[in-house]
Design a protein around this nucleic acid. Structure first.
Length: 466
RNA sequence: GGCCUGAUGGCGGAGCGGUUACGCACCGGAUUGCAAAUCCGUGAAGCCCGGUUCGACUCCGGGUCAGGCCUCCA
């Protein structure tokens, strides 16, 4: 099965061929750890988690290296540390841990590598020096700046020319810049801010250099796929390319010398009101998973194609919850069915290999659930269940215990209470005491529990609240 | 101003030049002590105006609308 992906740089869907199938490399821009992650931050995590799973499936688990950085040097981190009167590491460790826990709740696998800026300062200094040596950067007043005019292909990713950028520049130009579009590789720290020694004075790295330096140091150039949100195309990824290409000798105009493919996910839409801190409507993953299963959020994030905008609404979440109930419902009824060979069904694999067409893959999932529901023979049920589980695994879904799925949110006390009521109701039903059976059903209903009778006895679930 | 997306049934959301997307909801039927779940089935679409074509939701042109980026941002 050939993987095809939409390459932002080429602006078309292309066949993916790794530089080295024995070592496929993927890098995704990760969080700046100074606060909780919101649901928009989670989209690239989940999308590229699906890609990570797919690549591992195609090339073998040990042949894929996925790096997602943790930015632990930043103004906002400094401010928070200052406010709390602690070292920045207190802030960054705290929010990195929360981030990883939250993303795990969304079913995202841990990346192979999670490089941090503070652990890669040597690599950053090394790359800056190489850029200066290659004539692509220059020191000025304690800064080191990248000279954009030295890189002819600058603007290729975001499809804009240097002239356009200069014409449309809205930023105040620092006097020490040769060109208004030159960007910072190294800058002096303000008093009280963390700083590192460098040949150009004490200071800290600019925003873009960390990624290209960590990629070079941790993955090696060029990497296969670089991913991130749409908004990062310019200036972040554009500048990364400039740095990553120019740090190497002999490749000065070859964009592929840095990353061979570029993938960018679209944004979540939140209706008329843009999600922002000032409006107080930021949807934090940390909060959402308290009331909504992470798997529902994951499925919702995958319900639209990753490049398309996705309207994030309560309606979407409730629809998604019901859909997941349906899938787990099929598995619940097949709990007695043993599973042996688990192979990702062709339809799902085809969908994912077509530029991660998750809506199509999800449609396949629904079809497989129906096959499982309608299969009559034991062999048929076994195969259907295996298919559904394998398809789910490819998407990072349906790996939980179906029984537990429907009892989420029910503590031990409630569970015991429910079991007792159901036992009492079973007695009433055996005696055909329908008024009593219905009375107990109502009692359970008041507890937000739904009972489902079947030949083999009653099962129950916590009713969805969203 | 520059660059770039998108506009599909009640809602979410894909593929496709001519045949059912799929999910959620709705309606009819089966099943059920009641109900849920499930199954069977029906209904429901392609922003506007041109063009290409035997035929367009799908291709081309124009328009309208919405959104994103150009500054920290998934």
């Amino acid at each position: 099965m050939k993987l095809h992906i939409h390459d932002t740089l080429k602006r078309e869907k292309v066949q993916f061929t790794p530089n080295n199938p024995e070592r496929v490399t993927l890098y995704v821009c990760g969080p700046t750890v100074y606060d909780f992650a919101h649901i928009g931050n989670a989209r690239p995590v989940v999308v590229f988690d699906v890609l990570f799973r797919l690549l591992r499936h195609l090339y073998g688990e040990s042949h894929v290296t996925y790096a997602r950085n943790i930015t632990d040097v930043d103004d906002k981190i400094n401010k928070k540390a200052m406010d709390e009167g602690v070292d920045i590491s207190v802030i960054t460790n705290r929010y990195a841990d929360i981030y990883n826990a939250d993303m795990a709740a969304l079913g995202a696998l841990r990346p192979t590598l999670e490089p941090r800026v503070t652990h890669n300062m040597d690599a950053i200094l090394h790359q800056i020096q190489a850029l200066i040596d290659n004539g692509h950067a220059y020191p000025a007043e304690g800064h080191v700046l990248f000279d954009v005019e030295s890189y002819k292909a600058y603007g290729a990713l975001s499809n804009r020319s240097l002239d356009d950028m200069i014409a449309g520049a809205r930023v105040e130009v620092a006097p020490y810049k040769k060109n208004p579009q030159d960007f910072v590789l190294w800058k002096p720290s303000k008093p009280g801010e963390p700083l590192w020694a460098s040949p150009w004075g004490e200071g800290r790295p600019g925003w873009h250099i960390e990624c290209s330096a960590m990629i070079e140091a941790n993955l090696g150039l060029p990497i296969d796929i670089h991913g991130g949100g749409h908004d990062l195309i310019f200036p972040h990824h554009e500048n990364e390319i400039a740095q990553g290409v120019c740090t190497q000798h002999g490749h000065a105009h070859d964009s592929d010398a840095y990353s061979r493919y570029w993938m960018h996910n679209g944004f979540l839409d939140f209706g008329k009101e843009k999600m922002s801190k000032s409006l107080g409507n930021v949807k934090l993953v940390h909060e959402m998973i308290k009331t909504t299963p992470g798997e529902v959020l994951r499925l919702a994030l995958l319900s639209a194609h990753y490049r398309a905008p996705l309207d994030w609404t309560d309606e979407l979440i409730s629809q998604t919850h019901k859909r997941l109930d349906g899938l787990y419902g099929a598995l619940r009824k097949a709990q007695d069915v043993p599973v042996r060979d688990v192979v990702v069904p062709a339809g799902v694999l085809e969908a994912l290999c077509d530029d991660l067409n998750t809506p199509q893959a999800l449609a396949e999932l629904s079809a497989l659930a129906k096959v499982l529901e309608t299969a009559t023979s034991e062999a048929g049920r076994m195969m259907a269940k295996a298919d559904l589980l394998a398809a789910g695994a490819a998407l990072g879904l349906l790996q939980g215990d179906p029984e537990a799925w429907f009892k989420q949110g029910a503590g031990d006390d409630l569970t015991a209470q429910v079991e007792a009521l159901i036992a009492a109701r079973a007695v009433a039903r055996a005696e055909k005491n329908w008024p009593e059976a219905d009375r107990i059903r109502k009692e359970l209903d008041a507890l937000n529990i739904e009972v489902m009778d079947s030949a083999g006895g009653a099962s129950w679930k916590v009713k969805a609240t969203n």
